[in-house]
Simulated assay, not measured.
Amino acid sequence: MEQNVSAALHKGNEVAVIVFSIHNLAILKREMDSAASQRLWEQVREAFHTVIREEIPSDQIAAVRAYYQDGIALFLKIDHKMDTVPNIDFTIQLILEKLQTKVWRSLQQSVQPIFCTGYIFIDRQIDQLRDAIYLAYQQALSMAQKGLTSEFNEMSFALGKIVANKDISLLAQPILDVETNKVKACEMLTRGPVGTSLENPLQLFSVARQTNHLYDLEMVVLEKALEQIKLTTWKFDIFINFTPLTLGNQHFVKDLKKLMNKYKEISPNRITIEVTERDSIEGLEYFISNLKLLRLIGFRVAIDDTGAGYASLNSISEIMPDIIKIDRSVIQNIDKNSVKESMLKGLLLIAKEVGSIVVAEGIESAEEALVLSRNKVDLAQGYFYARPTSLSNNLQTIV
């Protein structure tokens, strides 16, 4: 296991430790003898392995390990340039639904197991990989058993402290006009406290979600972004990411207006609200109405990660975004894959119908950039043009 995890980390991936635990295990044990309890655990473990084989591509799995009857851990390889926290949540939910169905079918007892999940990323800063793996497992288990362990309380406290002290930093990645190579905007990217495991944005936002600090954290990101625009007198557009969970919060528009009043010199028409599209918008009562209000105020709306995650085309038809951002999974190696270029052309046709500007994300080579140029994509961002850096008017001439 350690060898596979080590190989994944050395290739530049993150490794998420996802723990599936039986929430009502104590109740189940009271209803059965030790032999029956052991059979239940074996059935759960067998069902879990079956679901993993059926639902998760093998090249995404670093390892699977059962830790006695506490929980089963899936070590999932995460490409931090492509995968997002909502995508991990989607994977967990998929496994959970399949697992629940398989276990229910195989058991005849009156009380059925109820699964709970938690996840955390392995901390690269811990010298001994075995220690890092064990710590990540314990933390993920505590996330699954929310509120029942000191580890969960400590992580919740850490997030609360970050929010209270606004202890985050922002980097800016330029967005360029494909035809002229001139900078047109920047996307703000969040980092947690320097030198901690929460500096990693995937770790930061995953813990924030699981400890119910996500909304407050995203509002801190917004305030920090406005603060940097004011300090640097940045004159171009700024893209700021928000999850649908935050955008669908009934207090969001009021809280946003309050912040904008604090920075009156910044016009809303310079801010693009970027919806992380891999989150589902179903069931969010205020989501669409909040977006309408944001547009009336002057903000523009972009859909992020188009081409990956939840039903992209349905989201586009509901949101009718001003900007469509095409996910890196579509762009990566597009110069070598005619199907991907056909997907790009299809998304460009949809954007034209909707009246949306198109931004291609994750450009890493001149060959990929050439495909964008010949298909007349509007804007692009990625390491080929510029890496994330501090917001500064010098970014206007970075390319």
Rank of each mutant, 00 (worst) to 15 (best):
Y263E: 12
Y263T: 13
Y263F: 15
K264C: 10
E265A: 14
E265C: 09
I266F: 01
I266S: 01
P268A: 10
P268C: 09
N269A: 10
N269T: 13
N269M: 09
I271R: 02
I271G: 09
T272H: 10
T272E: 05
I273F: 07
I273V: 15
V275F: 03
V275N: 06
T276K: 12
E277S: 15
R278N: 14
R278L: 01
D279H: 11
I281Y: 07
I281N: 10
I281L: 09
I281D: 11
E282P: 00
L284W: 05
E285D: 13
Y286Q: 14
Y286N: 15
Y286W: 14
F287T: 03
I288S: 13
L291N: 10
L291E: 04
K292C: 11
K292E: 15
L293N: 11
L293R: 14
L294N: 04
L294R: 02
R295E: 11
R295Q: 12
R295F: 06
R295W: 06
G298E: 08
R300F: 03
R300E: 09
R300Q: 13
V301S: 01
V301D: 00
I303L: 15
I303E: 05
I303N: 02
D305C: 01
D305M: 03
T306E: 04
G307P: 11
G307L: 07
A308G: 02
A308F: 03
G309P: 09
Y310E: 14
Y310D: 11
Y310C: 13
A311S: 15
S312H: 02
S312E: 00
L313F: 13
L313G: 02
N314F: 05
N314K: 08
S315P: 00
I316E: 02
S317P: 01
S317E: 11
S317W: 10
E318S: 08
I319Y: 05
M320S: 09
P321N: 06
P321C: 07
P321W: 04
I323S: 03
I323Y: 02
I324P: 00
K325A: 04
I326K: 01
D327A: 07
D327W: 06
R328P: 01
R328A: 06
S329T: 13
S329F: 01
V330L: 13
V330H: 03
Q332A: 06
Q332G: 00
Q332R: 09
N333Y: 08
N333C: 04
I334L: 13
I334C: 14
D335Y: 12
N337C: 10
S338H: 06
S338E: 11
V339Q: 11
V339H: 10
V339K: 13
V339P: 02
K340E: 00
K340R: 13
E341L: 02
S342H: 08
S342M: 06
M343V: 07
M343K: 01
L344M: 14
K345F: 00
K345D: 00
K345R: 12
K345C: 01
G346N: 11
G346Q: 08
L348W: 02
L348A: 03
L348D: 07
L348C: 09
